[in-house]
Simulated scan of single mutants.
Amino acid sequence: MEIVNTAFRLFAESGYSMVQMKDIAEACHISKSLLQHYFPKKIVLLSTMLNELMLSAFTYSNEQLTALSSEQRTMIQMSFLLRTLDENPKIEHFIRDVFESPELTTELVLVSLDWLEAIGVEGETAAIRYAINFSVSGGMAVFFKRKLLKASVEAISENIAQSFYLLLGKDVQKINQVYLSTAKYNTDRYYQHFVDYLHTHATIDLSSEIKI
């Protein structure tokens, strides 16, 4: 975890492509060969971080929002994740690198797919996977250009969640009702609780990347 935390800080500060394995080894005060014993390639290290971060975020929903429907939890989680990226440039920098890699985007989809199935989102696995790929890839492309497009984080979050459920064949009126029912959770109070939870429970040290 010391290696993972150190590499995460370097990737967040400088970008994935600018950080070499020797840089990570030097920052950890170990040899490059020892680093590669644990993580043979840089992308394996990044994939590990992605899994740890996503699982920490999803665990919050599993533990704190259990009384809500799977649709509500999905919409709230998307809103919280995008707001976290918007308010913390280092995390956004890290996630932008993830979406530039088809391999890591696939990894993110697989983690998300496991979570959606675990909370009971209905639909064939292939259909859910298609809906994730389509809505999240398109939504994040808009998110990274939000200033140019003058698009709000709230609107992008809503569009991603709505397009996901529309692709699964959900009724538009029902989707709108679910969205309205999540409004109280998308407030500073609930968001702050989410951030506090990440700082306390995440396996990766987020103290310098996510503001409290």
Results as ranks from 00 to 15, higher is better:
91 I>G: 00
106 T>V: 10
110 L>Q: 14
62 N>T: 10
174 K>F: 14
202 A>R: 09
19 V>E: 06
73 R>P: 00
120 G>H: 11
158 E>F: 11
153 V>I: 15
72 Q>T: 05
141 A>W: 04
168 L>T: 01
162 Q>P: 01
106 T>S: 14
105 T>M: 12
99 F>V: 07
145 K>W: 01
142 V>F: 11
127 A>H: 09
210 I>K: 06
180 L>T: 06
98 V>G: 02
116 L>K: 03
80 F>E: 11
112 S>V: 01
159 N>F: 11
114 D>T: 08
141 A>R: 10
21 M>H: 06
174 K>H: 15
122 E>N: 15
97 D>K: 04
50 L>A: 01
60 Y>T: 06
155 A>C: 01
189 R>S: 07
164 F>E: 01
163 S>V: 00
115 W>V: 00
44 V>F: 08
70 S>C: 09
142 V>W: 09
90 K>C: 04
112 S>R: 07
193 H>G: 14
84 T>A: 15
150 K>G: 01
25 A>L: 07
189 R>Q: 13
122 E>S: 15
24 I>E: 05
109 V>C: 05
204 I>N: 04
58 F>S: 12
26 E>G: 00
118 A>Y: 12
43 I>P: 00
164 F>W: 01
139 G>L: 03
78 M>L: 10
201 H>R: 14
133 N>D: 08
130 Y>I: 08
37 H>A: 10
74 T>L: 13
39 F>G: 03
188 D>A: 15
140 M>D: 02
202 A>G: 05
72 Q>F: 09
72 Q>C: 11
197 Y>R: 02
199 H>P: 01
206 L>D: 09
50 L>E: 06
5 N>G: 05
22 K>A: 12
99 F>T: 04
169 G>V: 01
86 D>G: 13
196 D>M: 01
58 F>P: 08
21 M>P: 03
80 F>G: 07
193 H>E: 15
173 Q>R: 13
117 E>G: 12
169 G>C: 03
205 D>S: 09
88 N>E: 09
30 I>W: 12
58 F>I: 03
146 R>L: 07
26 E>R: 14
72 Q>E: 14
124 E>A: 15
57 A>M: 14
13 E>H: 08
103 E>S: 10
59 T>F: 08
122 E>D: 15
71 E>H: 08
212 I>W: 04
160 I>Q: 04
119 I>W: 05
212 I>E: 11
14 S>H: 14
32 K>I: 07
63 E>T: 15
88 N>P: 10
15 G>P: 04
148 L>Y: 08
17 S>L: 14
75 M>R: 04
